[in-house]
């Protein structure tokens, strides 16, 4: 009374997520909301950079932030206190990354869409977030000087999927053996189109350049 059958599938494990991601990207385009996915290792300075960046951008753009962490809401509170910008905390339920479905839930949770830029601060991790397309319009990663100029060699996929690489903590260059030319070479080996912007989130150096780059990318995207 039961029959067993084999169904051929031959599909990538990531194909369902990629479909969700493309759908979300389309939806965001219709709403005119630019979603920036920010990734890095833990401690590279994502939250500090975001605070400086938002304070530079908020006079020109309406911004909201989604914070993804395995637990706690310290980052969401920190961002709100330091910038006044609405920030919501997403918990990944133990997972090391956000996927497109979780990102969509976050976007839907923002309530009103009178916003130009949503920044998604992904879980601090250089492996898994690179593998799951969130549906963002642009991927950005931060590499901080103490981590070393060879990071792009060790985590190639992260640098392949990011078109914007920010080199943070350049105020510490004198105490580390970090070669700026070498890091650029290593990044461009993985992604020849990557824009590289050195900054110090602590001193504020380079934040204006980063802000201007994002503004021009957003206006290019709007005309697309």
């Amino acid at each position: 009374m039961e029959s067993v059958k084999i169904i051929e599938i031959k599909k990538s494990v990531f194909s369902a997520n990629e479909m969700d991601a493309n759908e979300l990207r389309k939806e965001l385009k219709e709403k005119g909301v630019f979603l920036l996915n920010l990734m890095s290792s833990p401690g590279a300075g994502k939250t500090t950079t975001l605070i400086k960046l938002i304070n530079e951008l908020k006079k020109d753009l309406k911004i909201k932030v989604m914070e993804a962490d395995i637990d706690s809401d310290v980052d969401a509170i920190k961002i709100k206190d330091a910038t006044g910008v609405e920030s919501i905390q997403l918990h990944t339920g133990g997972m090391c990354h956000l996927d497109a479905e979780m990102t969509k839930q976050g976007i839907d949770g923002l309530k009103d869409f009178d916003v130009d830029l949503v920044i998604l601060e992904n879980v601090g991790n250089l492996v898994c977030p690179a593998e799951f397309d969130t549906g963002a319009c642009m991927n950005m990663t931060i590499l901080s000087v103490p981590e070393g100029d060879d990071k792009p060699l060790k985590y190639p996929l992260m640098y392949q999927v990011c078109n914007l690489v920010v080199i943070n903590k350049i105020d510490t260059l004198s105490v580390f053996d970090f070669d700026m030319d070498k890091v650029k070479e290593n990044i461009h080996m993985r992604n020849p189109n990557a824009e590289i912007i050195p900054i110090s989130a602590k001193t504020g150096e380079g934040i204006d350049k980063l802000a201007n780059f994002l503004k021009s990318e957003i206006s290019k995207w709007r005309k697309m």
């Binding site: 039961e2 059958k5 599938i9």
Partner: peptide
Amino acid sequence: KETNIKDIKVVYEEE
């Protein structure tokens, strides 16, 4: 680099 679902074995209720 593959991470594919190749196939699945399923059970149908007959009739």
